[in-house]
Amino acid sequence: MAKPSLKAAFDAKKFVVAPGIYDGISAKVADGMGFDCLYVTGFGTVASHLGEPDAGIATYTDMVSRVSRFAQMSRTPVIADADTGYGGLLNVRYTVKGYEAGGVSGIQLEDQEVPKKCGHTPGRRVIPAEEMVLKIKVAVEARTDPNFLIVARTDARTSLGLEEAIRRGRMYGDAGADIVFIESPESEAEMVEIGRSITTKPLLANNVEGGRTPILSKQRLAEIGYGIAIYPAVGFLAAAAAYERAFSHLKQMGDSNGLPAQESYGFTRICELMGFPEVWEFDKRWAVLDK
């Protein structure tokens, strides 16, 4: 079931900051940090699982087990990327049911054509707004838990302009989406216009370091009308940089001696994060019988 605290946060007009998670370690670390929400990034999950670009390659089957595992292992509510719903209206219905059954607290659906592409890369095309409205209505009907939130994303800004993106955002909110996500506005002025134009539902800001949209402070985002900021790439960008530095040291030196302390999480600490002390305690208690 969805965790009710996320919907309660939005109902209380609390601004939500959500880091991107994409594997078990990132989920474990983020879950212990006290955030109100975690965001399962499609880009990062596809990259870590398949080693492929976020370009419509991952299927519902690829994703549902992973996002469900992230949700079930986390005390923090999880919003998970579900691309286009992986097909037509029936696919959307099954996707919503599968994500909800997996313990996800919110699902993100977008209006791109299949195959979809990452929202901060070129070449995205969108389906007619009316088709997306039907997808949202199906999603609303498919959920059984009122705490399960539906995030409706439009990628129309890049190909059809800001005015059309705002029109779609309004339509998607009217169709029943709980959160409206206008992807990749290209200036603060555009974000201000979005906040001025869509006031009935919380707005989501997608903050990608090096992406198409300026990264504003949470205070500024709240001031101009946004309710949630996701940072899908911050974790895997940092992890990739750390991998590169550590592996470079290993390649150059031939061993890990002298690796700066900040480049290593520490074996003892990672064992604690992953729950090994509980395993060791179990082994001690049952050691006599397990022979």
Rank of each mutant, 00 (worst) to 15 (best):
P4T: 12
D11A: 14
D11N: 13
A12S: 13
K14V: 14
V17I: 15
P19I: 11
P19G: 06
G24E: 10
G24V: 10
A30E: 10
A30I: 06
D31K: 10
G34E: 13
F35A: 10
Y39R: 03
F43N: 03
F43C: 00
V46P: 01
S48I: 04
S48K: 05
E52S: 13
I57F: 12
M63T: 10
V64D: 06
A71H: 09
M73S: 13
T76Y: 08
D83F: 02
T84P: 07
G87Q: 09
G87R: 07
L90Q: 12
N91M: 04
N91R: 01
T95C: 09
K97R: 15
G98Y: 03
Y99Q: 00
V104F: 01
S105H: 03
Q108A: 07
E110S: 08
E110D: 10
D111N: 14
Q112L: 01
K117Y: 05
C118H: 03
P128R: 13
P128T: 14
V138Y: 00
V138Q: 03
E141C: 02
T144K: 14
D145S: 07
N147P: 03
L149P: 02
V151Y: 09
T154H: 00
T154Y: 00
S159P: 01
G161Y: 05
R167M: 04
G173F: 11
A177D: 08
A177C: 05
D178S: 07
P185E: 08
E188C: 01
V192W: 00
V192A: 11
T200C: 00
K201H: 14
K201M: 03
L203G: 06
N207C: 15
N207F: 06
P214L: 05
S217N: 11
K218N: 12
Q219L: 05
Q219K: 11
L221F: 06
E223M: 11
A229Q: 13
Y243T: 11
K251P: 01
S256M: 15
S256W: 08
L259G: 09
P260S: 10
A261H: 12
L273G: 09
P277R: 13
E278Q: 14
F282S: 12
F282Y: 15
F282M: 13
F282A: 13
D283V: 11
K284H: 10
W286S: 10
A287M: 10
V288C: 03
